[in-house]
Computed example of a mutant assay.
Amino acid sequence: MNEPEIVWRKSSFSGPTGECVEVARAADAVLVRDSKRGAESPVLRYTGDEWQVYVDALAAEQLGTYCGPVILVRFDEDWWEMWRDGAPRPSLTFFDGEVAAFVAGVRNGEFTLEALGAGDGRGGDAPGSGSDAALSAP
Rank of each mutant, 00 (worst) to 15 (best):
I71T: 13
I71W: 06
I71P: 00
I71S: 12
L72A: 10
L72W: 05
L72E: 08
L72I: 15
V73E: 15
V73D: 13
R74N: 09
R74L: 08
F75Q: 14
E77N: 12
E77Q: 13
E77P: 07
D78M: 11
D78L: 09
D78R: 13
D78T: 14
W79P: 04
W79D: 13
W80M: 01
E81N: 08
M82Q: 14
W83P: 00
R84A: 15
R84Y: 08
R84S: 14
D85W: 11
G86R: 10
P88I: 09
R89E: 14
P90T: 03
P90F: 03
P90M: 07
P90H: 07
S91N: 07
S91E: 11
S91P: 01
L92Q: 03
L92H: 04
T93L: 13
D96S: 12
E98V: 07
A101Y: 02
F102G: 04
A104V: 01
G105H: 05
G105Y: 02
R107K: 15
N108I: 00
N108Q: 11
F111T: 07
F111A: 10
F111R: 06
L113Y: 03
L113M: 07
A115W: 02
A115E: 00
L116R: 02
L116K: 01
G117A: 00
G117E: 00
A118W: 06
A118R: 14
A118I: 08
A118Q: 13
A118Y: 07
A118G: 14
